[in-house]
Design a protein around this nucleic acid. Sequence first.
RNA 1: GCGUCGGUGGUAGAGUGGUCAAUUACAACAGACUGUAAAUCUGUCGCCUUCGGGCUACGAAGGUUCAAAUCCUUCCCGGCGCA
Length: 409
Amino acid sequence: MKEFRFSIEKKIPNSLGRAGVISTPHGDIKTPAFVPVGTKATVKGMTSEMLTDLGAQVVLANTYHLYLQPGDELIRDAGGLHAFMNWHKPMLTDSGGFQVFSLGVAYGKGISKVLHPADPSVQIPERSSADDGVPRLATIGNDGVSFRSHINGSLHYITPEKSIEIQHNLGADIIFAFDECTSPTEDRRYQEEALHRTHSWAQRSLNYHKSKPNSQKQALLGVIQGGRDEELRKLSAKTISEMRTPDGEEFDGFGIGGSFDKEDLHSSVRWVNEILPEEKPRHLLGIGEPEDLFEGVENGVDLFDCVAPTRNARTTGSLYTKDGRMNILNAQYRSDFNPIEPDCGCYLCKNFTRAYLAHLFRSKEMLGSTLASIHNLYFIANLVATMREKILEGTFPEYKAQFLARYQK
RNA sequence: GCGUCGGUGGUAGAGUGGUCAAUUACAACAGACUGUAAAUCUGUCGCCUUCGGGCUACGAAGGUUCAAAUCCUUCCCGGCGCA
Protein backbone atom coordinates (compact mmCIF):
# COMPACT_ATOMS: atom_id res chain seq x y z
CA MET A 1 0.00 0.00 0.00
CA LYS A 2 1.17 3.47 -0.88
CA GLU A 3 0.72 5.64 2.15
CA PHE A 4 2.17 3.21 4.68
CA ARG A 5 5.92 2.92 4.97
CA PHE A 6 8.46 1.75 7.50
CA SER A 7 12.10 2.67 7.48
CA ILE A 8 14.88 1.68 9.86
CA GLU A 9 17.26 4.43 10.96
CA LYS A 10 19.62 2.53 13.18
CA LYS A 11 19.98 -0.87 14.80
CA ILE A 12 21.23 -1.98 18.19
CA PRO A 13 24.45 -3.91 17.47
CA ASN A 14 24.26 -7.65 18.11
CA SER A 15 20.55 -7.64 18.81
CA LEU A 16 17.25 -7.41 16.97
CA GLY A 17 16.46 -3.90 18.18
CA ARG A 18 16.10 -0.91 15.90
CA ALA A 19 14.93 2.70 15.72
CA GLY A 20 12.83 3.74 12.75
CA VAL A 21 9.86 5.65 11.39
CA ILE A 22 6.42 4.39 10.42
CA SER A 23 4.65 6.68 7.96
CA THR A 24 0.86 6.70 7.84
CA PRO A 25 -1.80 8.87 6.18
CA HIS A 26 -2.07 10.77 9.47
CA GLY A 27 1.62 11.34 9.99
CA ASP A 28 4.78 9.62 11.15
CA ILE A 29 5.46 7.50 14.21
CA LYS A 30 9.03 7.55 15.43
CA THR A 31 9.78 4.07 16.70
CA PRO A 32 10.11 2.43 19.05
CA ALA A 33 6.96 4.05 20.38
CA PHE A 34 4.38 3.52 23.06
CA VAL A 35 0.71 3.60 22.04
CA PRO A 36 -1.76 4.76 24.72
CA VAL A 37 -4.98 2.75 24.72
CA GLY A 38 -8.25 4.53 24.08
CA THR A 39 -10.59 1.57 24.06
CA LYS A 40 -13.88 3.36 23.60
CA ALA A 41 -12.60 6.19 21.40
CA THR A 42 -11.11 7.99 24.36
CA VAL A 43 -7.96 7.57 26.38
CA LYS A 44 -9.90 7.69 29.64
CA GLY A 45 -9.90 11.12 31.17
CA MET A 46 -7.66 12.68 28.52
CA THR A 47 -8.19 15.14 25.68
CA SER A 48 -6.25 14.95 22.43
CA GLU A 49 -4.32 18.06 23.43
CA MET A 50 -3.18 16.46 26.67
CA LEU A 51 -2.06 13.37 24.79
CA THR A 52 -0.14 15.41 22.26
CA ASP A 53 1.48 17.51 24.98
CA LEU A 54 2.73 14.50 26.90
CA GLY A 55 4.35 13.07 23.79
CA ALA A 56 1.83 10.54 22.49
CA GLN A 57 2.29 10.02 18.75
CA VAL A 58 -0.46 7.48 18.21
CA VAL A 59 -3.38 5.85 20.03
CA LEU A 60 -5.15 2.50 19.84
CA ALA A 61 -8.92 2.04 20.02
CA ASN A 62 -10.85 -1.18 20.36
CA THR A 63 -12.94 -2.74 17.64
CA TYR A 64 -15.13 -4.90 19.84
CA HIS A 65 -16.11 -2.14 22.24
CA LEU A 66 -16.84 0.40 19.53
CA TYR A 67 -18.81 -2.15 17.52
CA LEU A 68 -21.08 -2.60 20.55
CA GLN A 69 -21.19 1.07 21.46
CA PRO A 70 -21.82 3.41 19.70
CA GLY A 71 -21.57 1.13 16.63
CA ASP A 72 -18.97 1.17 13.86
CA GLU A 73 -21.43 2.42 11.24
CA LEU A 74 -22.19 5.47 13.33
CA ILE A 75 -18.48 6.20 13.58
CA ARG A 76 -18.14 5.74 9.82
CA ASP A 77 -20.97 8.25 9.35
CA ALA A 78 -19.22 10.64 11.74
CA GLY A 79 -16.28 10.65 9.37
CA GLY A 80 -14.28 7.89 11.00
CA LEU A 81 -12.56 7.60 14.37
CA HIS A 82 -10.08 10.42 13.72
CA ALA A 83 -12.87 12.93 13.23
CA PHE A 84 -15.17 11.37 15.83
CA MET A 85 -12.67 11.62 18.68
CA ASN A 86 -10.72 14.60 17.36
CA TRP A 87 -7.42 12.73 17.12
CA HIS A 88 -5.75 13.57 13.85
CA LYS A 89 -2.54 11.65 14.30
CA PRO A 90 -1.87 7.99 13.60
CA MET A 91 -4.30 5.52 15.08
CA LEU A 92 -4.59 1.74 15.48
CA THR A 93 -7.54 -0.50 16.17
CA ASP A 94 -7.37 -3.87 17.88
CA SER A 95 -9.20 -6.74 16.15
CA GLY A 96 -11.37 -8.03 18.98
CA GLY A 97 -9.17 -11.10 19.29
CA PHE A 98 -8.19 -10.24 22.83
CA GLN A 99 -11.86 -10.24 23.87
CA VAL A 100 -12.08 -13.83 22.60
CA PHE A 101 -9.77 -14.50 25.51
CA SER A 102 -10.77 -11.96 28.16
CA LEU A 103 -14.49 -12.62 27.74
CA GLY A 104 -13.97 -16.35 27.09
CA VAL A 105 -11.69 -18.67 29.04
CA ALA A 106 -10.28 -15.87 31.16
CA TYR A 107 -13.68 -14.49 32.09
CA GLY A 108 -14.20 -14.22 35.83
CA LYS A 109 -10.94 -16.01 36.63
CA GLY A 110 -8.61 -13.16 37.38
CA ILE A 111 -6.40 -14.17 34.45
CA SER A 112 -5.05 -11.36 32.39
CA LYS A 113 -2.38 -10.46 29.93
CA VAL A 114 0.59 -11.58 31.99
CA LEU A 115 0.26 -14.40 34.50
CA HIS A 116 2.22 -14.48 37.70
CA PRO A 117 2.18 -18.20 38.51
CA ALA A 118 3.61 -17.60 41.97
CA ASP A 119 0.51 -15.66 42.94
CA PRO A 120 -1.81 -18.11 44.74
CA SER A 121 -4.83 -15.89 44.14
CA VAL A 122 -4.73 -16.66 40.44
CA GLN A 123 -6.87 -19.62 39.55
CA ILE A 124 -5.40 -21.71 36.78
CA PRO A 125 -8.25 -23.14 34.74
CA GLU A 126 -8.16 -26.70 33.53
CA ARG A 127 -8.78 -27.17 29.86
CA SER A 128 -10.96 -30.18 30.61
CA SER A 129 -13.26 -28.35 32.98
CA ALA A 130 -14.89 -26.15 30.39
CA ASP A 131 -17.99 -26.31 32.55
CA ASP A 132 -16.56 -24.72 35.64
CA GLY A 133 -19.67 -22.84 36.61
CA VAL A 134 -18.37 -19.47 35.49
CA PRO A 135 -20.38 -18.21 32.52
CA ARG A 136 -18.42 -17.06 29.52
CA LEU A 137 -19.31 -14.20 27.28
CA ALA A 138 -17.42 -15.60 24.30
CA THR A 139 -17.42 -19.03 22.71
CA ILE A 140 -15.14 -19.98 19.86
CA GLY A 141 -16.10 -21.75 16.66
CA ASN A 142 -13.91 -22.39 13.66
CA ASP A 143 -15.74 -19.84 11.55
CA GLY A 144 -15.85 -17.09 14.18
CA VAL A 145 -16.67 -16.21 17.76
CA SER A 146 -20.01 -15.75 19.49
CA PHE A 147 -19.98 -12.90 21.95
CA ARG A 148 -22.55 -11.97 24.49
CA SER A 149 -22.39 -8.25 25.07
CA HIS A 150 -21.02 -7.31 28.48
CA ILE A 151 -23.22 -4.23 28.24
CA ASN A 152 -26.67 -5.71 27.71
CA GLY A 153 -26.28 -9.44 27.10
CA SER A 154 -27.18 -9.32 23.40
CA LEU A 155 -25.59 -11.95 21.17
CA HIS A 156 -23.09 -11.09 18.42
CA TYR A 157 -21.12 -13.17 15.98
CA ILE A 158 -17.72 -11.92 14.83
CA THR A 159 -15.82 -13.51 11.98
CA PRO A 160 -12.49 -12.38 10.53
CA GLU A 161 -14.34 -10.64 7.70
CA LYS A 162 -16.65 -8.93 10.18
CA SER A 163 -13.71 -7.72 12.29
CA ILE A 164 -12.04 -6.21 9.23
CA GLU A 165 -15.27 -4.66 8.04
CA ILE A 166 -15.76 -3.01 11.44
CA GLN A 167 -12.17 -1.79 11.36
CA HIS A 168 -12.75 -0.36 7.88
CA ASN A 169 -15.71 1.57 9.23
CA LEU A 170 -13.64 2.83 12.15
CA GLY A 171 -10.89 3.91 9.77
CA ALA A 172 -7.69 3.62 11.82
CA ASP A 173 -4.38 3.85 9.96
CA ILE A 174 -3.21 0.48 11.21
CA ILE A 175 -5.55 -2.44 11.84
CA PHE A 176 -5.12 -6.04 12.99
CA ALA A 177 -6.15 -9.45 11.68
CA PHE A 178 -8.70 -11.26 13.82
CA ASP A 179 -6.97 -13.80 16.05
CA GLU A 180 -7.52 -16.06 19.03
CA CYS A 181 -5.55 -15.06 22.09
CA THR A 182 -5.01 -18.17 24.21
CA SER A 183 -4.22 -18.57 27.87
CA PRO A 184 -0.66 -19.73 28.71
CA THR A 185 -2.33 -22.38 30.86
CA GLU A 186 -3.71 -24.19 27.80
CA ASP A 187 -1.99 -27.44 26.83
CA ARG A 188 0.04 -27.92 23.69
CA ARG A 189 -2.73 -29.74 21.85
CA TYR A 190 -5.13 -26.86 22.33
CA GLN A 191 -2.47 -24.24 21.50
CA GLU A 192 -1.90 -26.01 18.22
CA GLU A 193 -5.59 -26.17 17.39
CA ALA A 194 -6.03 -22.48 18.28
CA LEU A 195 -2.99 -21.53 16.23
CA HIS A 196 -4.37 -23.22 13.13
CA ARG A 197 -7.57 -21.29 13.67
CA THR A 198 -5.67 -18.01 14.06
CA HIS A 199 -3.79 -18.70 10.82
CA SER A 200 -6.96 -19.50 8.97
CA TRP A 201 -8.55 -16.33 10.31
CA ALA A 202 -5.41 -14.37 9.33
CA GLN A 203 -5.73 -15.59 5.76
CA ARG A 204 -9.40 -14.62 5.65
CA SER A 205 -8.64 -11.22 7.22
CA LEU A 206 -5.91 -10.60 4.66
CA ASN A 207 -8.01 -11.70 1.69
CA TYR A 208 -10.99 -9.65 2.75
CA HIS A 209 -8.94 -6.54 3.53
CA LYS A 210 -6.93 -6.55 0.33
CA SER A 211 -10.10 -6.95 -1.73
CA LYS A 212 -11.44 -3.64 -0.43
CA PRO A 213 -10.52 -0.05 -1.34
CA ASN A 214 -9.77 0.66 2.33
CA SER A 215 -6.59 -1.36 1.95
CA GLN A 216 -5.18 1.65 0.11
CA LYS A 217 -5.22 3.76 3.26
CA GLN A 218 -5.26 1.28 6.13
CA ALA A 219 -2.34 -1.04 6.86
CA LEU A 220 -3.13 -4.56 8.07
CA LEU A 221 -0.93 -6.34 10.58
CA GLY A 222 -1.04 -10.13 10.88
CA VAL A 223 -1.01 -11.46 14.44
CA ILE A 224 1.45 -14.11 15.62
CA GLN A 225 0.24 -16.52 18.32
CA GLY A 226 1.54 -19.87 19.58
CA GLY A 227 1.51 -19.44 23.33
CA ARG A 228 4.69 -20.30 25.21
CA ASP A 229 5.72 -23.00 22.76
CA GLU A 230 8.87 -22.22 20.78
CA GLU A 231 8.00 -24.46 17.89
CA LEU A 232 4.48 -23.03 17.55
CA ARG A 233 5.70 -19.45 17.90
CA LYS A 234 8.23 -19.96 15.13
CA LEU A 235 5.69 -21.75 12.97
CA SER A 236 3.31 -18.85 13.44
CA ALA A 237 5.94 -16.23 12.57
CA LYS A 238 6.84 -18.14 9.42
CA THR A 239 3.24 -18.77 8.39
CA ILE A 240 2.03 -15.21 8.92
CA SER A 241 5.06 -13.60 7.29
CA GLU A 242 4.76 -15.84 4.20
CA MET A 243 0.99 -15.48 3.92
CA ARG A 244 -0.28 -14.03 0.62
CA THR A 245 -3.60 -13.30 -1.02
CA PRO A 246 -4.32 -15.03 -4.32
CA ASP A 247 -3.01 -11.81 -5.91
CA GLY A 248 0.23 -12.03 -3.99
CA GLU A 249 -0.48 -9.30 -1.45
CA GLU A 250 0.95 -9.64 2.03
CA PHE A 251 0.61 -8.19 5.53
CA ASP A 252 1.95 -4.68 6.04
CA GLY A 253 3.44 -5.59 9.39
CA PHE A 254 2.96 -7.88 12.35
CA GLY A 255 1.39 -8.02 15.76
CA ILE A 256 2.70 -10.33 18.45
CA GLY A 257 -0.17 -11.53 20.57
CA GLY A 258 -0.81 -13.88 23.43
CA SER A 259 -1.20 -13.98 27.16
CA PHE A 260 2.09 -14.82 28.75
CA ASP A 261 3.93 -16.17 31.69
CA LYS A 262 6.22 -13.36 32.73
CA GLU A 263 9.32 -15.42 31.96
CA ASP A 264 7.99 -16.58 28.57
CA LEU A 265 7.25 -13.12 27.30
CA HIS A 266 10.80 -12.12 26.41
CA SER A 267 11.82 -15.39 24.81
CA SER A 268 8.60 -15.53 22.79
CA VAL A 269 9.27 -12.11 21.33
CA ARG A 270 12.80 -13.07 20.37
CA TRP A 271 11.79 -16.36 18.71
CA VAL A 272 9.26 -14.54 16.59
CA ASN A 273 11.31 -11.52 15.62
CA GLU A 274 14.24 -13.66 14.53
CA ILE A 275 11.96 -14.96 11.81
CA LEU A 276 9.80 -11.99 10.86
CA PRO A 277 11.11 -9.92 7.91
CA GLU A 278 13.19 -7.07 9.24
CA GLU A 279 11.76 -4.43 6.93
CA LYS A 280 8.23 -4.53 8.31
CA PRO A 281 7.09 -3.07 11.64
CA ARG A 282 6.20 -5.21 14.65
CA HIS A 283 3.71 -4.41 17.35
CA LEU A 284 3.76 -6.21 20.71
CA LEU A 285 0.13 -6.33 21.75
CA GLY A 286 -0.84 -5.31 25.25
CA ILE A 287 2.57 -5.09 26.86
CA GLY A 288 3.95 -2.02 28.56
CA GLU A 289 5.67 -2.38 31.93
CA PRO A 290 9.10 -0.71 31.85
CA GLU A 291 11.14 -3.92 32.13
CA ASP A 292 9.06 -5.49 29.33
CA LEU A 293 9.52 -2.44 27.12
CA PHE A 294 13.29 -2.71 27.37
CA GLU A 295 13.20 -6.39 26.50
CA GLY A 296 10.77 -5.78 23.67
CA VAL A 297 12.81 -2.97 22.15
CA GLU A 298 16.01 -4.92 22.44
CA ASN A 299 14.35 -7.85 20.72
CA GLY A 300 13.06 -5.88 17.77
CA VAL A 301 9.62 -4.58 18.73
CA ASP A 302 8.65 -1.21 17.22
CA LEU A 303 5.27 -0.50 18.81
CA PHE A 304 3.69 -1.31 22.17
CA ASP A 305 0.23 -0.62 23.44
CA CYS A 306 -0.83 -1.18 27.02
CA VAL A 307 -3.57 -0.17 29.41
CA ALA A 308 -1.25 -0.37 32.39
CA PRO A 309 -0.14 3.29 32.54
CA THR A 310 -3.68 4.64 32.38
CA ARG A 311 -5.37 1.94 34.42
CA ASN A 312 -2.73 1.96 37.13
CA ALA A 313 -2.94 5.71 37.32
CA ARG A 314 -6.66 6.04 37.27
CA THR A 315 -7.94 3.14 39.31
CA THR A 316 -5.39 2.80 42.06
CA GLY A 317 -3.22 5.86 42.09
CA SER A 318 -0.15 3.86 41.18
CA LEU A 319 2.46 6.11 39.58
CA TYR A 320 5.64 5.28 37.75
CA THR A 321 8.86 6.80 39.02
CA LYS A 322 12.49 6.13 38.25
CA ASP A 323 12.63 4.34 41.59
CA GLY A 324 9.74 2.03 40.81
CA ARG A 325 6.03 2.43 41.31
CA MET A 326 4.55 4.44 44.16
CA ASN A 327 0.95 4.52 45.36
CA ILE A 328 -0.27 8.05 45.97
CA LEU A 329 -2.92 6.72 48.39
CA ASN A 330 -0.30 5.66 50.93
CA ALA A 331 -0.72 7.64 54.13
CA GLN A 332 2.79 9.13 53.91
CA TYR A 333 1.88 11.26 50.88
CA ARG A 334 -1.05 13.10 52.48
CA SER A 335 1.15 15.96 53.57
CA ASP A 336 4.07 15.54 51.20
CA PHE A 337 4.50 18.81 49.33
CA ASN A 338 7.06 17.54 46.84
CA PRO A 339 6.22 16.72 43.24
CA ILE A 340 5.81 13.05 42.29
CA GLU A 341 9.26 13.26 40.67
CA PRO A 342 11.27 16.46 40.95
CA ASP A 343 12.98 16.04 37.59
CA CYS A 344 9.88 14.93 35.67
CA GLY A 345 8.74 17.20 32.87
CA CYS A 346 5.04 16.27 32.93
CA TYR A 347 2.18 18.65 33.63
CA LEU A 348 1.46 17.02 36.99
CA CYS A 349 5.01 17.19 38.30
CA LYS A 350 5.60 20.71 37.05
CA ASN A 351 2.48 22.10 38.73
CA PHE A 352 1.28 20.02 41.66
CA THR A 353 2.42 18.27 44.83
CA ARG A 354 2.00 14.71 46.04
CA ALA A 355 -0.27 16.04 48.77
CA TYR A 356 -2.57 17.61 46.19
CA LEU A 357 -2.80 14.45 44.11
CA ALA A 358 -3.36 12.42 47.30
CA HIS A 359 -6.18 14.79 48.20
CA LEU A 360 -7.77 14.45 44.75
CA PHE A 361 -7.67 10.66 44.98
CA ARG A 362 -8.96 10.52 48.54
CA SER A 363 -11.82 12.83 47.68
CA LYS A 364 -12.41 10.98 44.41
CA GLU A 365 -12.09 14.08 42.30
CA MET A 366 -11.89 13.15 38.63
CA LEU A 367 -8.98 15.49 37.98
CA GLY A 368 -6.87 13.07 40.03
CA SER A 369 -7.33 10.31 37.46
CA THR A 370 -6.51 12.69 34.65
CA LEU A 371 -3.37 14.08 36.27
CA ALA A 372 -2.12 10.64 37.26
CA SER A 373 -2.77 9.37 33.72
CA ILE A 374 -0.83 12.30 32.30
CA HIS A 375 2.12 11.45 34.50
CA ASN A 376 2.14 7.72 33.75
CA LEU A 377 1.70 8.18 30.01
CA TYR A 378 4.39 10.82 29.98
CA PHE A 379 6.68 8.54 31.94
CA ILE A 380 6.22 5.60 29.57
CA ALA A 381 6.20 7.66 26.38
CA ASN A 382 9.31 9.44 27.54
CA LEU A 383 10.96 6.17 28.54
CA VAL A 384 10.46 4.68 25.08
CA ALA A 385 11.45 7.93 23.38
CA THR A 386 14.65 7.91 25.42
CA MET A 387 15.30 4.32 24.36
CA ARG A 388 15.00 5.54 20.77
CA GLU A 389 17.52 8.30 21.38
CA LYS A 390 19.92 5.86 22.98
CA ILE A 391 19.62 3.50 20.03
CA LEU A 392 20.50 6.39 17.71
CA GLU A 393 23.40 7.34 19.99
CA GLY A 394 24.53 3.72 20.23
CA THR A 395 24.18 3.55 24.03
CA PHE A 396 21.01 1.52 24.48
CA PRO A 397 22.58 -1.33 26.53
CA GLU A 398 24.10 1.13 29.00
CA TYR A 399 20.81 3.01 29.36
CA LYS A 400 18.88 -0.19 29.93
CA ALA A 401 21.25 -1.38 32.65
CA GLN A 402 21.28 1.98 34.37
CA PHE A 403 17.51 2.47 34.28
CA LEU A 404 16.62 -1.01 35.50
CA ALA A 405 19.21 -0.98 38.27
CA ARG A 406 17.43 1.96 39.82
CA TYR A 407 13.85 1.06 38.86
CA GLN A 408 13.97 -2.48 40.21
CA LYS A 409 16.05 -1.92 43.34
C1' G B 1 -40.54 22.52 83.72
C1' C B 2 -43.73 18.36 81.91
C1' G B 3 -44.25 14.50 78.24
C1' U B 4 -41.94 11.51 74.69
C1' C B 5 -38.22 9.15 71.69
C1' G B 6 -33.23 8.33 71.66
C1' G B 7 -27.58 8.06 73.17
C1' U B 8 -23.66 1.38 70.11
C1' G B 9 -16.75 0.89 67.52
C1' G B 10 -13.40 6.97 63.18
C1' U B 11 -18.73 8.10 61.06
C1' A B 12 -23.74 6.50 59.90
C1' G B 13 -26.59 2.75 61.61
C1' A B 14 -28.30 -2.80 62.96
C1' G B 15 -28.76 -5.61 67.31
C1' U B 16 -33.13 -5.40 72.46
C1' G B 17 -31.10 -11.17 78.26
C1' G B 18 -26.56 -16.04 76.56
C1' U B 19 -24.67 -18.29 69.64
C1' C B 20 -21.86 -10.18 70.48
C1' A B 21 -15.67 -7.71 70.04
C1' A B 22 -20.96 -6.72 68.17
C1' U B 23 -24.71 -7.39 60.81
C1' U B 24 -23.93 -3.63 57.17
C1' A B 25 -22.19 0.74 54.73
C1' C B 26 -18.73 4.59 54.53
C1' A B 27 -13.96 6.16 56.13
C1' A B 28 -9.04 4.36 57.26
C1' C B 29 -4.74 0.95 56.17
C1' A B 30 -2.27 -2.47 52.80
C1' G B 31 -2.27 -5.17 48.14
C1' A B 32 -3.47 -6.50 42.88
C1' C B 33 -3.95 -4.71 37.88
C1' U B 34 0.23 -5.70 30.86
C1' G B 35 -4.33 -5.72 22.68
C1' U B 36 -9.56 -2.00 29.46
C1' A B 37 -16.35 -6.49 31.83
C1' A B 38 -11.76 -1.87 35.20
C1' A B 39 -12.80 5.96 38.21
C1' U B 40 -12.30 -1.84 39.31
C1' C B 41 -11.21 -5.84 42.57
C1' U B 42 -9.00 -8.26 47.17
C1' G B 43 -7.48 -8.34 52.28
C1' U B 44 -7.22 -5.95 57.21
C1' C B 45 -9.87 -2.91 60.38
C1' G B 46 -10.84 -2.50 69.85
C1' C B 47 -6.04 -3.76 72.63
C1' C B 48 -2.59 -7.83 73.85
C1' U B 49 -1.16 -12.86 72.48
C1' U B 50 3.52 -18.34 73.22
C1' C B 51 -2.66 -17.96 68.29
C1' G B 52 -5.00 -21.90 73.01
C1' G B 53 -6.72 -17.53 74.54
C1' G B 54 -6.61 -13.02 77.64
C1' C B 55 -8.25 -7.94 78.55
C1' U B 56 -11.29 -3.52 77.86
C1' A B 57 -15.83 -1.99 75.50
C1' C B 58 -22.42 -0.33 73.37
C1' G B 59 -23.53 8.01 77.42
C1' A B 60 -22.16 7.77 83.30
C1' A B 61 -22.79 5.48 88.04
C1' G B 62 -25.19 1.87 90.69
C1' G B 63 -28.43 -2.57 90.70
C1' U B 64 -31.11 -7.41 89.11
C1' U B 65 -29.24 -12.14 86.96
C1' C B 66 -25.40 -18.07 86.54
C1' A B 67 -25.21 -14.46 82.29
C1' A B 68 -26.53 -7.36 80.50
C1' A B 69 -25.30 -3.39 74.51
C1' U B 70 -30.03 -5.67 75.76
C1' C B 71 -33.93 -5.48 82.27
C1' C B 72 -34.36 -1.74 86.72
C1' U B 73 -32.85 3.10 89.33
C1' U B 74 -30.57 7.79 89.29
C1' C B 75 -27.75 11.26 86.70
C1' C B 76 -25.75 13.60 82.12
C1' C B 77 -26.60 14.76 76.89
C1' G B 78 -29.65 15.26 72.23
C1' G B 79 -34.38 15.36 68.96
C1' C B 80 -39.52 16.34 69.02
C1' G B 81 -44.23 17.98 71.38
C1' C B 82 -46.65 20.92 75.19
C1' A B 83 -46.08 24.89 78.51
